[in-house]
Simulated scan of single mutants.
Amino acid sequence: MTARLWIVRHGNTFQAGDPSRRIGARTDLPLTDAGRAQAVALHDRFAADRVEFGAVLSGPLSRTRETARIVAGTEAEIAPWLVEVDHGPDEDANEAAVTARIGRAALSAWDAGGVAPPGWIVDTDARLAAWRDLFARARGDVLLVTSNGAARFALLALDERPASLKLRTGAWGLIEIVAAVPRLVEWDVRP
């Protein structure tokens, strides 16, 4: 049996020109109009490719649930392991303040290898186990809507890394599972 995991990062939650901040599990921002437009573009792309999702999973925050609803046209099953990371003392802080607190090396380790900076609550082992469990049991086309912080663990569970672990807002990655072997097909693709 073949499965395809369509991993989507939620749409934009900041208006154009807003300063970048670390928003995670404790800040439930809604999608902006631009974020909803990103979700519609994903819906249209998957519809044009005739992708029919047999299962739809999302993190519990409104931005992931709304993105899933727009993309798939149905409510998602909430998967707690898809929740965004908890940025601890860096929650809602701008990037300059985060960098000043933890340093560029810690941010590079997070971006390159998923090593959580000091004070962030990530539960790496549980996230990796959840992705591996999904790889073992998934069937058909599955839509997963989450955050950049949570999505990266799909790649880490594969031990396969593209040039960047980053998944931009409104972008998808595709993992195909054939004969119980998962492989990365695409990452960080926008319609």
Rank of each mutant, 00 (worst) to 15 (best):
E91F: 12
T99G: 06
I78T: 07
I175Y: 02
L144N: 06
R190K: 14
I177W: 08
H43I: 11
S58V: 03
A109S: 08
R132Q: 07
V40T: 14
A39S: 06
A130K: 05
V51I: 03
H10R: 09
W120D: 00
L42S: 04
P117D: 12
V98H: 01
L174G: 01
E160T: 15
L155Q: 08
R4L: 07
V178T: 10
L143K: 10
P162K: 02
G11M: 04
G103F: 07
I70G: 02
P191S: 01
P117A: 12
L29F: 15
V51Q: 05
F135W: 00
A41N: 12
F135C: 00
E66K: 01
T169D: 07
V85I: 12
R152D: 09
N148M: 11
R45S: 14
A105I: 09
T2C: 14
D18E: 04
A47G: 11
I177L: 09
G54P: 04
D188P: 03
A150R: 03
E84W: 08
N148L: 10
R139C: 13
R69F: 00
A16Y: 09
P80K: 02
A138Y: 06
P162M: 02
G114I: 08
E160R: 15
I177T: 01
L57E: 05
T32E: 06
D49A: 15
P191G: 03
I121E: 12
L167Y: 02
T64F: 02
S20L: 15
I78C: 07
V8P: 00
A37G: 12
